[in-house]
């Protein structure tokens, strides 16, 4: 096979209706970053381990490198940029900054998109449970302690505790 197969897709990204022709072999995050210039989602391994590419698809967090862009046809995709614009995780982001729950920041968008799922459930969680929930997201800088602190603080505030 020599040609590069492409196809038309239509999807909603961060609330905006988007129609594009995509290469079928391209994964979702390459599409978001390259075609839509949404560079907040990062690529750390492209084999589904590091979690830097985590994005929300149809309401749940997924690995953006383990899904083809073409598969997102008709889907609702939310990236860190979208979560920021809607203010859904403004409290979590503020807690990350205040607690210095990031250093290089390369993992932060994925970490936040994942943690957003935990917060959405609005159920109490122990530090161990928070660590467990985030254990598919690699951070090389912080050692995780500050991240757990920031998520815990935000969750407790939301639960009024």
């Amino acid at each position: 096979m020599t040609g590069e197969e492409t196809t038309e897709i239509t999807l909603t990204v961060n609330g905006e209706r988007i129609a594009r022709r995509v290469r079928v072999r391209e994964h979702l995050v390459d599409f978001l970053r390259g075609e839509l210039q949404l560079t907040g989602s990062h690529l750390g391994c492209e084999h589904g381990i590091c979690g830097a590419c985590s994005v929300r698809v149809d309401g749940v967090v997924v690995r953006g490198c383990l899904m083809l862009a073409v598969q997102a046809d008709g889907a609702e995709v939310t990236t860190i940029e979208g979560l920021t614009d809607t203010g859904e995780i403004a409290d979590l982001q503020a807690a990350f900054v205040e607690r210095n729950a990031l250093q290089c920041g390369f993992c932060s968008p994925g970490m936040l998109v994942t943690a957003a799922d935990l917060l959405k459930a609005a159920k109490p969680a122990t530090r161990e449970e928070i660590r467990n929930f985030l254990s598919g997201n690699f951070c090389r800088c912080t050692g995780y302690h500050a991240i757990v602190d920031a998520v815990e603080t935000t969750l407790n505030k939301r639960l009024g505790r």
């Binding site: 040609g3 196809t7 079928v24």
Partner: peptide, 11 residues
């Protein structure tokens, strides 16, 4: 590390 070319069909 990008996938090689392939065709895609949504069943």
């Amino acid at each position: 590390m990008k996938a090689p070319k392939f065709s895609y069909v949504r069943a």
